[in-house]
Amino acid sequence: MAAGGDHGSPDSYRSPLASRYASPEMCFVFSDRYKFRTWRQLWLWLAEAEQTLGLPITDEQIQEMKSNLENIDFKMAAEEEKRLRHDVMAHVHTFGHCCPKAAGIIHLGATSCYVGDNTDLIILRNALDLLLPKLARVISRLADFAKERASLPTLGFTHFQPAQLTTVGKRCCLWIQDLCMDLQNLKRVRDDLRFRGVKGTTGTQASFLQLFEGDDHKVEQLDKMVTEKAGFKRAFIITGQTYTRKVDIEVLSVLASLGASVHKICTDIRLLANLKEMEEPFEKQQIGSSAMPYKRNPMRSERCCSLARHLMTLVMDPLQTASVQWFERTLDDSANRRICLAEAFLTADTILNTLQNISEGLVVYPKVIERRIRQELPFMATENIIMAMVKAGGSRQDCHEKIRVLSQQAASVVKQEGGDNDLIERIQVDAYFSPIHSQLDHLLDPSSFTGRASQQVQRFLEEEVYPLLKPYESVMKVKAELCL
């Protein structure tokens, strides 16, 4: 049975990233139509530049190519590739079939990587351009969430054990800070992308030097003109047959890092959902379990974690691919890159769409948070109580021993009897502590235990987050809708 299948058929496997999760716009960027249309555009740009620099290419040939950029006979191309065992030459023939007058000058002087690699770089750039505003929107939604809850005390956790208090907004800023680093890295790697350009079979530009009869300047002009037509500021000066596969490492490393950030955020949300302090959106008709109707599973956060793990592992592909590119190139890269580049971007696209949807509907339960604080705060307040007693004339050592005994009794009630923490009640009825009984409410005010959390939130948002989001103001209103 021949390899390949009808990918629109229910009898043929289709990647869930495309069929179930990723956005239509990201799927289109990695589609065959987008790819092969870009090949034709690159052939047109090459012909236009070659004509401008004096090669015998007519206006009629150029116009014929322009008129057929979208006229792609995919069936013919597939048949040609089956016959020739070469995808680029299959599309040269297919393009030439609908451009008979231009057929002889299509791909003039070029090698397969002229269309293959340059198209990949265009796709990487455009895919990054799709991700950047999506990530900015996630940051914006979380920034709104953090600002609104900047002063809401909550129990902090280290080692997932109760620690000092923080605020809900401050905790959210930990998430935002990681995503801001990801946004900066995505922008950097996007701006650092260079075009492969017009380089020939081993990167020496020998074929173009021959076409222009040894004119170095025209060869350099050709490279520059096509690079500018493709919208790049610069091209690699040095290439082998391909652009260095280190570029793929750079791009997928940034995406993998984004995956790590999203995994951490969504894990926190899942843990908070278990504590009943916070939940992701839950639709009115949504079913959490087929057997347990009360369940409210954090399905979206779980999906993000599941896909983020996949995204983090994909960076190993370009690392290994770059390491086995012998001399000017081997074909070890080809099949692998067809999979890992598309999957990385479709996965990143999915987790950003999902995280935006989550961040637009996060639900906080202040009463649950308050109750958990009441359970733990008495123990945390013991040092403040000791200091207040010393100020009232008591002995630190005597007070410490009193607190120690009462704390152990209260802990026994919590752990052995399943009761509430009654340390404060014990202190309130103990005559030894009568000098500070009137101060206990103040000493137990949760806001006095959150330090500068709310001020940190305000400063972080104003100095770091809002300036970073400013270039994306025009796209901030787009909502994230999930079908599944």
Rank of each mutant, 00 (worst) to 15 (best):
I238P: 05
P16G: 11
H107E: 04
D349W: 04
E425S: 11
S261H: 00
I237W: 06
R20Y: 00
K402G: 05
D215V: 08
A18H: 11
R190M: 13
M89A: 08
Y294D: 01
L46H: 05
P298Y: 01
V413F: 13
S261G: 11
S290H: 00
V413W: 11
L258S: 07
M181E: 11
F236T: 07
I351Y: 00
V29Q: 06
R338Y: 02
R245C: 00
D117I: 00
L444C: 02
T450C: 12
I57Y: 05
D178Q: 07
W39R: 00
E220H: 14
V405E: 14
E370T: 10
T227V: 07
L124A: 09
H310D: 02
E370V: 07
V414A: 04
K402S: 05
Q320S: 11
L135Q: 15
S359K: 07
S334L: 03
A322E: 10
Q409T: 08
E370L: 11
M476N: 15
N384H: 13
R426T: 06
L255D: 02
T119W: 03
R125K: 14
Y294G: 03
C399T: 13
K246D: 00
D6L: 06
E220N: 12
P435R: 11
T119K: 01
A260P: 07
P281L: 08
I265H: 07
P162R: 03
C172K: 05
L346F: 12
Q221K: 12
M387N: 11
D430Y: 06
S289V: 01
T330Q: 01
L165V: 12
K199C: 07
G109Y: 01
Q285K: 13
L275S: 11
Q61K: 07
D87P: 01
Y294L: 02
G240D: 02
L132P: 11
Q325L: 13
E328N: 01
E283P: 01
C27P: 14
C399S: 14
L155R: 01
C27T: 14
A103V: 13
D268M: 05
D120T: 06
T321S: 08
K477G: 11
Q458L: 11
C340A: 14
R83N: 13
K75Y: 10
E425D: 13
E81M: 00
V251K: 00
D182I: 01
V254M: 07
I373C: 07
I339E: 02
I265F: 14
P318M: 05
Q409K: 12
E81N: 00
N384Y: 06
L183M: 09
D398K: 15
R190T: 13
I72F: 10
N68D: 11
Q356G: 10
V262K: 01
A110R: 00
I424E: 12
E425M: 08
P318H: 00
G288D: 01
N126L: 05
V254Q: 08
R296W: 07
L423T: 03
L179N: 02
S334G: 10
D11N: 10
G200A: 14
S412A: 10
R459E: 10
A388V: 04
P16T: 14
C113M: 05
H97G: 11
L444H: 05
N353V: 08
G8P: 14
Q177F: 13
F195R: 02
S253K: 04
V363D: 06
T111H: 00
S323N: 04
K477R: 14
H442G: 12
Y21L: 02
C27E: 11
A235T: 13
E220F: 12
T167R: 01
S151I: 11
K470Y: 15
K284F: 13
E64C: 10
A3M: 14
S323C: 12
E328I: 04
V315M: 12
G96K: 04
V189T: 14
F345S: 10
E463M: 15
K147E: 12
P10I: 15
Q61E: 09
K170R: 14
M278E: 02
A344V: 03
Y466H: 12
Q456C: 08
L443W: 02
G288T: 04
E464A: 07
C180L: 11
V405K: 12
S207C: 11
I385Q: 01
P471R: 15
S306R: 02
T330N: 05
L17Q: 14
P281M: 12
R125V: 09
E277H: 04
Q41W: 15
I139K: 03
V168P: 05
Q177R: 04
D144K: 15
E464M: 08
D215N: 13
Q456H: 07
M387Y: 06
A78Q: 15
F282S: 11
S438G: 09
V168L: 09
W45Q: 13
Y294N: 03
E64Y: 11
D59G: 08
A342F: 07
A344K: 00
Q375I: 06
L461A: 02
E343A: 07
A18L: 15
P435N: 07
L461N: 01
A163T: 02
L255T: 12
M89Q: 02
A2T: 14
L174N: 15
P298H: 01
E302H: 00
A348G: 12
E462I: 10
V219P: 04
K66P: 06
Q285W: 12
L42I: 11
K224R: 10
T58G: 07
P162Q: 12
V457A: 08
L423P: 04
F212N: 05
M312C: 08
C27Q: 10
M299G: 06
A49L: 01
P281S: 13
D87N: 10
E60T: 10
A163L: 03
L44E: 07
S395W: 05
M380W: 00
I386S: 05
